[in-house]
């Protein structure tokens, strides 16, 4: 996790520097706000990954000489097929169209969304 954490930290710190420089040099608050948010988008994931990095041993994928046998147990649960992403997608599509064509598409879209997300 060390490298993952340092990448995010690096981007966060770099943008933090840009934030300070931009804030005092340009004195333009819209851009400074966006810089500030971007710095946060780097530092927040870095904090999460750094927290885990300090609390766990290096994983097999972080170890140069790891063997296949070292990854024990299930990697994860992967569905073979499911219709629900399609239902949700169509629900989102129909609901979004209601912003243009009026509320009637929201009835269909909302129903699909509730049905799909249930």
């Amino acid at each position: 996790m060390k490298i993952e954490y340092r990448i995010y930290l690096g981007i966060g710190l770099f943008v933090s520097v840009l934030t300070v420089v931009y804030f005092f040099w340009a004195k333009e608050y819209g851009g400074a706000t966006m810089f500030f948010g971007t710095a946060g988008l780097g530092i927040m994931p870095a904090m999460y990954m750094g927290w885990w990095h300090r609390r766990m041993k290096p994983r097999p994928e972080d170890t140069e000489n790891a063997t296949m046998a070292e990854s024990k147990g299930a990697i994860g649960a992967f569905p073979s097929y499911t219709i629900w992403p399609f239902v949700l997608g169509m629900g989102a599509f129909m609901s979004a169209l209601s912003l243009v064509f009026g509320e009637w598409t929201l009835v269909i879209g909302g129903a699909l969304l509730i049905f799909g997300a249930r």
């Binding site: 972080d62 170890t63 140069e64 000489n65 790891a66 063997t67 070292e70 990854s71 994860g76």
Partner: peptide
Amino acid sequence: LRAPGLTM
């Protein structure tokens, strides 16, 4: 989800 040994 990297394979074992596949460091960054």
